[in-house]
């Protein structure tokens, strides 16, 4: 059956695109990869919805963790990895606490993000976080407002982290270089600027 019809009009073709799920839309390896990385039996999800019901992100966004679990089971790799909602999980682990089949949906999301990164599919704010960690050791570095607040509470202006001990930053950079995180983040961000 033809999934695409030739209307000779890109806009019309997109509008009238067949959205059916066909057998060959599925990449069974995707489910296997997700299971391997997440170390949870993602295939065992029976779609009860406890995860979405527990999710603090769901009421305020279009993020539905149950749908990611479903797409994982069906092997809908492209759809799951290209969905910007994938990055709305706050990793609070409420779903993992409550899952009746003792799965870890949070870890499934983390696995999918991991796989997305291999396709260079990462939102820019996440890449900038990588750069910040590389340069300062912090995803959210200290700033003047925080410093003032800390002083007011009788704390040192900077916490006892890389802010106070910058000599440890090269160690962090060594780990990140091993995984080529900074290199890839720089590359993807610069490609996006073209």
């Amino acid at each position: 059956m033809a999934k695409v019809k030739e209307y000779g009009n890109a806009e019309l073709e997109e509008k009238l695109r067949d959205t059916s799920y066909y057998t060959d839309d599925s990449n069974p390896q995707f489910l296997e990869d997700v299971k391997k990385i997440s170390r949870t039996a993602a295939n065992m999800c029976f779609q009860c919805g406890t995860c979405t019901g527990s999710c603090p992100s769901a009421p305020r966004s279009s993020y539905r963790i149950r749908l990611f679990m479903r797409k994982g089971v069906l092997g809908l790799e492209k759809e799951a990895l290209n969905d910007p909602d994938l990055w709305l999980c706050t990793t609070c682990y409420s779903c993992t606490d409550r899952c009746p089949r003792d799965l870890a949906p949070t870890d499934v999301i983390m696995a999918m993000r991991n796989l997305a990164f291999k396709f260079d599919i990462v939102p820019r704010n996440f890449l900038k976080t990588v750069q910040l960690i590389y340069n300062s050791g912090h995803g959210v570095p200290n700033n003047d407002v925080n410093r003032a607040a800390r002083v007011k509470l009788g704390l040192p202006a900077d916490p006892p982290t890389t802010h106070s001990y910058p000599e440890f930053i090269p160690g962090i950079q060594k780990i990140m270089d091993f995984y080529k995180m900074k290199e890839n983040a720089d590359r993807i961000l610069s490609e996006g600027e073209h």
């Binding site: 059956m1 799920y21 066909y22």
Partner: peptide, 16 residues
């Protein structure tokens, strides 16, 4: 070809 809806996904399904 089996036609149904995957009601969990909210999408029509046509599986061979």
């Amino acid at each position: 070809i089996v036609n149904t809806e995957d009601t969990l996904l909210g999408r029509p399904v046509a599986m061979e």
